[in-house]
């Protein structure tokens, strides 16, 4: 029983906005299969009765006072982007929701 099949690979590729060529799909599927097998070794550890842990070290979220701090210089910010128009970042066309 494989850990991942062609349909799942295509679905994940779609979520990641990746276009896979037909001949890439079996290659990627085999590679992901090996990665999942590797990760699956973790399930050998007995975690019976152990609380899941998402964080270590800090028990509660620290809170910040609602005080304005300086933002970055716009010219510097825009200079780091691949493409800009006017004072904005160029992105693929989208419908605002």
């Amino acid at each position: 029983m494989p850990l991942i099949d062609r349909a799942q690979v295509l679905h994940v590729a779609k979520l990641a906005r990746l276009t896979l060529a037909d001949d890439e799909v079996p290659v990627i599927t085999a590679q992901l299969e090996r990665i999942l097998e590797h990760i699956a070794q973790l399930s050998e550890v007995d975690t019976e009765g152990v609380e899941p842990t998402a964080h270590v070290g800090v028990d509660r979220l620290p809170l910040r006072e609602d005080v304005v701090a300086p933002s970055l210089d716009r010219a510097a910010v825009l200079a780091a982007a691949p493409d800009t128009v006017g004072h904005g970042f160029v992105v693929p066309a989208f419908v605002e929701e």
Binding site: T84, V85, G86, H87, G88, F89, V90, V91, P92, A93, F94
Partner: peptide, 13 residues
């Protein structure tokens, strides 16, 4: 109304 090329949008963060 800022984008200059079809298929692009311009974003303010």
């Amino acid at each position: 109304g800022v984008a200059e090329v079809p298929g692009q949008s311009v974003i303010d963060l």
